[in-house]
């Protein structure tokens, strides 16, 4: 089919009906988002500039919330250190998650017979079908000091794990990697499985070793998927509250120190004072950070895409 188009030399313009595809395909997502998301978004942004008096929200325009938060970045509440903790934990989580999932996807694509791949893939996504919070509870009992993993290890005579990993940011990462894995497996599978095998064959025909074929063909062509996975994982990890609080123990230890994640801090600030505007302002900082990660991720993905094309 493709050859036919090339043979013709010129591309015919498709016939356009009164419902031009261009208009419809742009209008549908725009209209829905405008109707059901822009208003909540505006609420969120505007509220950050409002104030609270007598436990009630007072409209107006004030930078007081932001000024107050600025005063807590490096002192008192120390949001700064919590942000650093979140960066550290989410970035390392993203690396671990991709390091775990990419080989998994390679194994699925290249060692599982084609007709079984979708089945294997479905079972990789299966953990997602149970509630995240219940999975986190299960990790608690697995990782606890007297938990399943330690008990099993002790029965094998390994007592070096006695301390347990629960309530450290290691446990946070385990919970997050497990949460992210099904999504990353899908993203990476879509990109790895589409790598044209004739390219790999050609490389091998030309005498490339398997490692070279991987480095020259598979790796460059997976880079878009990997970049998307990394930024997605960082964003979700940065915003997540469950793993950090239920596995990380609320203020789990990492090399940054025993410090809460920023997302957990927002939750606890929210729960402790009737001041939704200030919570919105705090959340705005989170959203801006995530947006930066998103834009950086998109840029990197574009670069990877261009490198391939």
């Amino acid at each position: 089919m493709a050859d036919a188009a090339l043979a013709c030399g010129a591309v015919a313009e498709p016939a356009r009906g009164p419902w031009a595809l261009r208009a419809v395909s742009i209008a549908v997502p725009v209209a829905y988002t405008a109707a059901f998301f822009l208003v909540p978004l505006a609420f969120f942004v505007v509220l950050g500039f409002w104030r609270v008096q007598d436990y009630q929200v007072v409209p107006g325009f004030s930078l007081e919330n932001y000024r107050d938060i600025a005063g807590h970045i490096l002192a008192q509440s120390n949001y700064g250190i919590a942000i650093v903790q979140s960066f550290y934990v989410s970035a390392t989580t993203a690396l671990c998650a991709v390091a775990f999932c990419y080989p998994l996807v390679l194994a699925i694509v290249y060692t599982v017979p084609g007709r079984l791949q979708r089945l294997v893939l479905l079972f990789a996504v299966a953990p997602f079908w149970t509630s995240y919070i219940l999975r986190v509870f299960a990790w608690q009992i697995l990782l606890a000091r007297r938990g399943i993993i330690n008990t099993a290890a002790a029965s094998l005579g390994w007592d070096w794990m006695e301390q347990g990993w629960l309530n450290t940011q290691v446990a946070t990462r385990i919970g997050l990697v497990h949460y992210l894995a099904p999504v990353l497996v899908i993203i990476l599978y879509v990109s790895v499985s589409s790598i044209d095998r004739t390219l790999i064959e050609a490389a091998r025909e030309l005498g490339a070793s398997r490692l070279q074929a991987f480095r020259r063909v598979i790796w460059p062509l997976s880079r878009v998927g990997i970049t998307v996975s990394l930024s997605f994982a960082t964003i979700i990890g940065f915003g997540d509250v469950l793993s950090g609080s239920l596995l990380g123990g609320g203020a789990g230890r990492s090399i940054v120190g025993a410090v809460p994640l920023f997302s957990n801090m927002i939750m606890s600030d929210y729960a402790s004072s009737t001041n939704l505007p200030r919570t919105c302002a705090l959340a705005m900082i989170l959203v801006l950070i995530l947006a930066c990660i998103l834009v950086a991720g998109l840029r990197a993905a574009e670069r990877a895409q261009r490198a391939v094309a």
Binding site: D68, H72, Q76, S77, N78, S272, S273, T274, N275
Partner: peptide
């Protein structure tokens, strides 16, 4: 203020 207590708790 509640927020002052919460700031101490965060600290």
């Amino acid at each position: 203020a509640e927020a002052a207590w919460q700031a101490i708790y965060n600290q």
